[in-house]
Amino acid sequence: MNALELTLIRIGFLAVLWLFVIAAIGVVRTDLFGPAAARRKRARVPRPQPVTAPVSKSRPTRSRGPNQLLVTAGSLAGTSLGLTDQQITIGRANDATLVLSDDYASTRHARLFPQDGQWLVEDLGSTNGTYLDRQKVTRPTPVPVGVPIRIGKTVLELRR
């Protein structure tokens, strides 16, 4: 065995080891963003509008208004929802937009909905009530950005 062969084996093995690492990172990437083919397809084809979605005339202006709902405390802390022009229902029911696993929340606890460019919170007759900041919500109330909404142990906020 000469020195050249030795070097080739040595460097070749390291290269294969790194190839494995790179392939593994590729798998992680696919996991995060979906397969490459689907990624290209998504980029080309604009997203079709949902047929059943009601086309709201008073679409909230995205540049000014909030664009996400963030859970800041509770078992879902860290979860965020993108705001569209559809209402968000919150509760323990399986068909709620945000399903809470919180003993202090009701099945259909509250809803958030857009109206005239702002978001309103409405309590849906919950047992333990919905609080906007420290105030109990008794009728649909506008929610400013960054003000906490408390539902049981869960705290939500609108973020821009």
Partner: peptide, 15 residues
Amino acid sequence: QPIQDEGMTQVVRAA
């Protein structure tokens, strides 16, 4: 698969 309310709601799994 949850029962969908005709597009009015979307089910979000807690991530």
